[in-house]
Design a binder for these strands. Structure first.
Lengths: 216, 216
DNA sequence: CGAACATTTGACGGGCTTCAAAAGTCGTGG
DNA sequence: CCACGACTTTTGAAGCCCGTCAAATGTTCG
């Protein structure tokens, strides 16, 4: 808001943060940046993915979003957390009608860049690598959520919790003398909504895992 | 096997069946067709999605596949059924290691067309619409599987079954040029593996739904 | 018919949710 | 520094949905 730097510089930073545009040259990044709209959301704000948004790709320039489903009685199921540099979009046409509504909530103050799909098409023409990048990124999301399906269906709460801890250990654990340290920036309730269970069950199963592991 | 028609004609049919190539002109379709490899699978054959396949896009030229996860004790969870004209692929790099293995089984004798991602990149350059088509198609898969996650987590068996029946009722058969009828086999066991439950539960809940509905 | 398979129905047990209360954690202000 | 309230976490108890095992009934096809 206070930033009155030249438009081009600020925009340049925006697109360069985004992995899917990593193959673009500075000049191209600049072109992209001039195409995007910006939107800001404050912490806690709900971003309903709806009809008018199907025409854009949404890139997270700053902040963090949690995507989730909600049941009529208020229980939530987290699908993913997306951060700076990640992107998301909706299927075009009227396909969105087929599916139950996904919601997103801003966990911090968040800025999104909106790129119209018709503009994306032009970028694809100049730099097909961008298309491959987008494809690969969505495929990762797809595999991740497929794994969640299998997990919910084929494993009990303790197995899901153990698998989740293990995954966090391997991907973001730091080795310490006692073993491997994982910092879990999630409350019991948040873990529960990731794993499709309740806070009480997470608490109980976690205490069992304490017993069989060496240190907490 | 008996078909000894000129290569180009047969290939032409192949690519033209595929929605993601719908914007290509006949000449381009022909070019695409010359790039693809073919593979055949007989009914019941397992197509393990693995490392060496990450470099291709797989297009179903003929037949039907069921994608699923399997637990150590043999219970299965169906992710989707894919048919003629659908496509699938694996994330490149070493990302596949992060996820539990998805398997696919051929429900009929099936032919796949393999298109290398580097070739796809060239096609994208000439016809960026193809990129958009692929994006849209995967987004639909993503939303579909997200809905399954929510369903497994937030609904009980009866609600999942009812929702599935309703969905089949509203847009059951998708009419295809050739008049391919959806003969996806739906025994109680298969419904169970779609909805993440058991045959017995499907049978029981179904009989309850009979009572409250008008006719079977 | 009879065998192989699919579906229904019964009975039981266990994991999980739900409701509820106790114990722990944290920040604020007297 | 401690007390207090708000919140999170733990623990308890009860009940139910659903998975499992098993047997009976229905269906299909040679």
């Amino acid at each position: 808001m206070m930033n009155i730097q030249p438009q081009k510089d600020a925009n340049h930073v925006c697109a360069s943060l985004v992995p899917i545009f990593s193959q673009l040259e500075p000049k191209q990044l600049c072109q992209v940046s001039n195409l995007v709209q910006r939107r800001s959301y404050s912490q806690g704000e709900i971003i309903a993915l709806s009809k008018d948004k199907a025409e854009h790709i949404y890139i997270i320039h700053k902040g963090q979003l949690r995507f989730f489903h909600e049941s009529p009685d208020g229980k939530g199921q987290t699908l993913y957390y997306l951060r700076q540099g990640d992107f998301f979009t909706e299927p075009g046409g009227n396909h969105f009608r087929k599916f139950s509504p996904v919601k997103a909530v801003a966990l911090e103050d968040t800025q999104l860049c909106l790129l119209h799909k018709s503009d994306l098409k032009r970028i694809l023409q100049e730099q097909p690598d961008v298309g491959i990048n987008i494809l690969e990124a969505i495929l990762l999301q797809l595999r991740q959520i497929e794994t969640l399906v299998a997990s919910l269906s084929l494993r009990n709460a303790e197995q899901r919790l153990a698998a989740w801890l293990y995954q966090r250990m391997t991907h973001s654990g730091t080795p310490v003398p006692q073993g491997i340290k994982i910092t879990v920036p999630f409350s019991r309730a948040e873990i529960a909504e990731l794993l499709g269970t309740t806070q009480e069950t997470v608490s109980r199963r976690l205490s069992l895992i304490w017993l069989t592991s060496i240190a907490r």
